[in-house]
Computed example of a mutant assay.
Amino acid sequence: MIRPTCEKDAAALARIYAYYVEKTAITFEYTAPDTTEMERRRQEISQRYPYLVAESDGKVVGYAYAHAFYGREAYAWSVESSIYVDVNIRKHGIGRKLYEALEKALKSMGILNINACIAVPRDNQDPYVTN
C-alpha cells in the first residue's frame, strides 16, 4: 500500500535511510539523521510536495518524496525525487510502485520535470555498498 507519510512514520524513515548513509555513498551525508530530524524534514517537504511511504503488513518498507530542484523561479515546475527502500526488501518492485505514485501526484500538481541525482560507483562492485 502506498500512502502519504505521517508523524508516526519518522522512526521508520530514519531506520531505512540510516543504512544508505552508513553503508553507501549515495546520500551525500556522513551522519544518519535521527527520528527527530527525519520528522523535521518530512514536515518541511510535505508542506509543498508529496512524501509517500510504501507499507507492507503494517510496516513501512520504503519511501519517496520530491523537493524543489533549484531555487530559481524558472525551475518552479521541476523537482528532484528521492526514493529509499528497506535494504532487506529490495528488488520486489517497491521502488517502482513508489516512483509511479510519486509521478502521478506530481503530475496532478502540474510538475513538468522530475530529476534524480544518482551516484554511481567507479567499478563493478555492489552499487549499494562502499568499502
Rank of each mutant, 00 (worst) to 15 (best):
I118Q: 10
A11S: 10
P121K: 15
E37F: 02
N131A: 12
L112P: 00
E100M: 11
Y70N: 07
F28P: 02
I94T: 14
L98S: 12
C117A: 15
M38A: 04
M109V: 06
G110W: 10
Y17K: 04
R40P: 01
R90D: 08
I118F: 08
K59Y: 08
I89P: 03
V53W: 11
A10S: 06
L106E: 08
I89T: 14
V120T: 14
Y63Q: 05
S56P: 04
A74V: 11
E7Y: 00
A76N: 10
F28H: 03
A32W: 04
V61F: 03
G95V: 14
V120S: 09
Q47Y: 06
Y17H: 13
Y49S: 05
E22G: 00
A10P: 00
S108Q: 15
G110T: 06
P33V: 00
I45K: 01
D123F: 09
K59P: 04
S56G: 08
R122K: 13
A101W: 07
C6R: 07
T36W: 05
G58K: 10
P127A: 09
A68F: 01
A119H: 13
I94S: 12
E55G: 09
K8N: 07
A76F: 06
Q125M: 09
K97I: 10
I2N: 03
E7T: 05
K97V: 13
E7G: 00
N113F: 08
R41M: 10
A18E: 00
I16W: 01
I89W: 12
Y30N: 10
H92L: 15
D9P: 02
I45S: 02
Y65E: 05
A64P: 12
Y30C: 05
Y70A: 05
K8Q: 11
P121G: 10
E100D: 13
V53I: 12
A68H: 02
I111A: 01
F69V: 02
T31L: 08
A64H: 08
F69E: 07
S108Y: 09
G62F: 08
D34L: 03
I26A: 03
N88Y: 10
A32Q: 04
A12S: 09
T130Y: 06
L106P: 06
F69D: 05
P33T: 01
C6D: 09
A116V: 07
K23Q: 09
S78Y: 01
I26H: 00
A66L: 08
T36P: 03
D57F: 12
A101Q: 14
N88I: 09
S81H: 12
T35H: 02
C6T: 03
M38T: 02
V53R: 11
A18Y: 00
T36G: 13
V85R: 13
A76G: 09
I94M: 14
T24K: 00
D57L: 12
Y19C: 02
S82R: 15
D34W: 03
T27Y: 04
Y20S: 01
V120I: 15
R90E: 13
G71D: 03
S46D: 06
E100W: 06
M1V: 05
P4K: 05
T27R: 04
M1L: 04
T35R: 12
L98P: 14
A76L: 08
Q125W: 05
P33W: 01
A11R: 11
A12T: 00
